[in-house]
C-alpha cells in the first residue's frame, strides 16, 4: 500500500511541481501585488491597501468592452462552428473529413500576427470596402471597428470551437439518430431532440475555451481595432508594460481571474446538468 502511495506521488510530482511553479506561485505574487503601491518610477512597493481594487472602476470601460465582445464573439464562433463541425462529423465522407479537419487547423501553423495583417488588408480601404464601392454599393468602413475585431476573433478562435463540437458529434452514437427516426421523428426534430442535446458538452467546452481566452485577448483588438477597441487584456498590457503600475495591473488581473472562475463554475454546473448529475462530463 505504502509503495503504491509513493508511486502515485512520483507520478504526480512533475505535474504538481509545474502547477505550483507556473500557476500557484505567480497567482500568489499577483494577489500580493494587488494590495501594494506603485513605486515612484513604477513597479511595486510593498503595502497593504485596497486602493487598487477601489480604482477598478477606472478600467470599467475595458471590462465592459470585453464583457460585450467576449460573449458576442463566442456566440458568433458557435454559430459558425456548429454547422461546420456538424458537416465534418456527420456529413463529410471519411476521406474528405481528414482533409477538411487539416484545413481547419492549417491557419494555426502561421502566426496570428501575420494572419491578422492579412485581415487588416482585407478589411482595409483597399480590400472589401473597395469591392463594395466598385459594385456601387456605397462606401463602408470595416477596419478598426468593433466589427473588424469580431471578424478577427471569429477567425482566430473558430478552430477552438470547432474541435470540441466535432468530437462530441463524432462520438455521437449514430444509432440514436436511427432510433429517433424509427420512433417517428423527422430529421430536423431528431437534430433538436438528440443531436443538439448530446453535443452540448462539446458546445459548452468550446464556448468556455473561447470565452475564457477572449477575456484575456489583447492582440486582435490592438491589430484589427486600430487601438480603438480596448479590451481588459489591452489594459493589462498597458498597465504592466507602459505605465508600469504593477499593483493596479495585479488588481485588474485578480478581478479578471475572478470573472473567469465564475465562468468556469457556471460551465461546470451547466455540463453537470447536461450530464445528468454524473461527475464525469462525457455522456457515452
Amino acid at each position: 500500500m505504502q509503495r503504491q502511495g509513493l508511486r502515485t506521488w512520483l507520478f504526480l510530482a512533475p505535474a504538481g511541481a509545474w502547477f505550483l511553479c507556473m500557476l500557484v506561485l505567480p497567482l500568489i505574487v499577483v494577489f500580493v501585488f494587488a494590495f501594494g503601491e506603485r513605486g515612484a518610477a513604477g513597479g511595486y512597493v510593498p503595502a497593504f491597501t485596497f486602493e487598487n481594487f477601489a480604482n477598478l472602476g477606472a478600467r470599467w470601460t475595458a471590462f465592459q468592452n470585453t464583457m460585450i465582445l467576449a460573449p458576442v464573439g463566442t456566440l458568433a464562433c458557435l454559430l459558425i462552428a456548429y454547422p461546420l463541425a456538424y458537416f465534418l462529423a456527420l456529413r463529410a465522407s471519411v476521406r474528405w473529413r481528414t482533409l477538411l479537419l487539416i484545413l481547419v487547423i492549417v491557419p494555426f501553423w502561421t502566426s496570428i500576427l501575420i494572419r491578422s495583417y492579412a485581415w487588416i488588408y482585407l478589411l482595409g480601404g483597399q480590400g472589401i470596402p473597395s469591392l463594395v464601392k466598385a459594385m456601387g454599393l456605397g462606401s463602408i468602413r470595416l477596419i478598426n471597428t468593433p466589427f473588424s475585431v469580431l471578424v478577427g476573433i471569429v477567425y482566430g478562435y473558430l478552430p477552438l470551437m470547432v474541435f470540441p463540437i466535432y468530437v462530441a458529434l463524432e462520438r455521437l452514437d449514430k444509432r440514436l439518430l436511427e432510433a429517433s427516426s424509427d420512433l417517428g421523428s423527422p430529421p430536423w426534430r431528431s437534430f433538436l431532440q438528440v443531436t443538439l442535446p448530446l453535443s452540448m458538452p462539446g458546445v459548452a467546452t468550446g464556448c468556455m475555451l473561447v470565452f475564457i481566452l477572449l477575456m484575456g485577448e489583447f492582440l486582435i483588438p490592438a491589430l484589427l481595432g486600430g487601438g480603438k477597441v480596448f479590451f481588459i487584456g489591452n489594459a493589462l498590457v498597458d498597465l504592466f508594460l507602459q505605465s508600469r503600475n504593477w499593483p493596479f495591473g495585479a488588481a485588474v488581473a485578480v478581478a479578471l481571474v475572478l470573472v473567469m472562475l465564475v465562468t468556469v463554475a457556471a460551465y461546470l454546473r451547466f455540463t453537470r446538468r447536461w450530464a445528468g448529475g454524473r461527475d464525469d462530463v462525457s455522456l457515452m
Partner: peptide, 8 residues
C-alpha cells in the same frame, strides 16, 4: 442491437 437508448 445495443438498445440505442437516449442517454440524456
Amino acid at each position: 442491437q445495443h438498445y440505442a437508448l437516449f442517454p440524456h
